[in-house]
Design a binder for these strands. Structure first.
Length: 305
DNA sequence: CAACAGGTTTGTA
DNA sequence: TACAAACCTGTT
């Protein structure tokens, strides 16, 4: 066990848990950093994550510890995942093995969050061909307009109390609330040409979500997802990874495209689909994790330059 | 001012 | 099936 529960707090060892890596590796946009504290607000929940001595604390402010243990995937052994990816890496002849090694070391605190489906789908449609700053502003506006202010259920620690005294957090709107929105509203909050896609897909969600996905292969699920407007292969794979917990997919965006060229030297140009299936073939059920380590390392490194 | 940003859709070979 | 071009819009 790499965590213990103390009332509304989860105490986590730092070895495979690092808030910066978790929140800034591109998997979620439902967080806010205030000082050294990360606040995360998935659905209608809220937690503060901060360093306390040698450990990280997840202080659950709305929603119980059980919810956040699942959300942060705390029952999973990420050290084992890292070891498995290292093993795969060692068997690759034509790979830049050092790149993987460095990525795993750099991102060892990453965890793949278990995110709610509607929030994930809507957020990633916004993210397509968009920059984080711009679409997080749209998402925050959406929360403010049609979510509810999250009230603190559990007594906050003194430190957190002070930090949130001037802050408001809003839940992600329910599907019911989203269904009432029209194209013009999404345009207004800066969705641009994605506005009709959002409108169409939200309209299709009740029917879509009623399906039983448990028996579906990842390939089948991908086909279903890309049939929704505004969802192409990349967004679909993100939704599968972050919303469905399908780790056997490898989302390829511009960053992973760059990584692929660094990683797989002299293979010639390949398109996103070819890259995705090649990496999937290599990493199998560790693809989702491997993607996050590589993506985070590449992007963070780029930002330092 | 043109290019770009964590792609998708639509139209054309 | 594969590849281009257009696409909202704030930033650099």
């Amino acid at each position: 066990m790499n965590y213990i529960v103390d009332e509304n707090k989860i105490i986590v060892k730092t070895e495979n848990f690092d808030p910066k890596s978790i929140f800034e590796c591109g998997q979620t946009f439902s967080f806010r950093k205030i000082g050294d504290v990360y606040f995360t607000f998935p659905e209608d929940k809220l937690a503060a994550v901060y360093l306390d001595g040698e450990n990280y604390v997840v202080e659950c402010l709305a929603g119980d510890t059980k919810f956040f243990i699942n959300y942060f995937d705390l029952e999973r052994d990420y050290q084992k995942i890292i070891l498995e990816i290292e093993k795969i890496n060692a068997s690759q002849e034509d790979f830049d093995r050092k790149l993987i090694e460095k990525s795993l070391k750099f991102g060892r605190g990453i965890r793949i969050l278990k995110q709610e489906l509607v929030e994930t789908i809507v957020s990633f449609i916004f993210s397509a061909n968009n920059n984080i700053k711009r679409f997080t502003a749209s998402l925050n506006q959406l929360r403010q307009d049609f979510g509810n202010e999250i009230s603190i259920e559990n007594e906050a620690s003194q430190r957190i109390k002070e930090l949130i005294s001037s802050q408001k957090f809003f839940s992600f709107p329910s599907l019911k609330a989203l269904l009432k929105l029209d194209e013009a509203y999404f345009s207004k909050i800066g969705a641009g040409y994605r506005a009709p896609y959002l409108f169409e897909t939200i309209k299709a969600l009740p029917n879509f979500l009623a399906e039983d996905f448990s028996f579906m292969s990842t390939d089948q699920l991908l086909k279903e997802l890309v049939s929704l407007k505004g969802i192409g292969r990349k967004v679909a794979q993100c939704v599968m990874l972050f919303g469905f917990g399908r780790v056997d997919c490898f989302p390829v965006d511009t960053w992973i495209k760059q990584v692929y060229n660094d990683l797989n030297r002299g293979e010639g140009e390949k398109n996103e689909q070819q890259i995705s299936s090649h990496l999937l073939k290599i990493f199998g059920n560790y693809s989702g994790y491997a993607q996050q380590y590589l993506f985070y390392y590449k992007r963070e490194l780029k930002q330092l330059v």
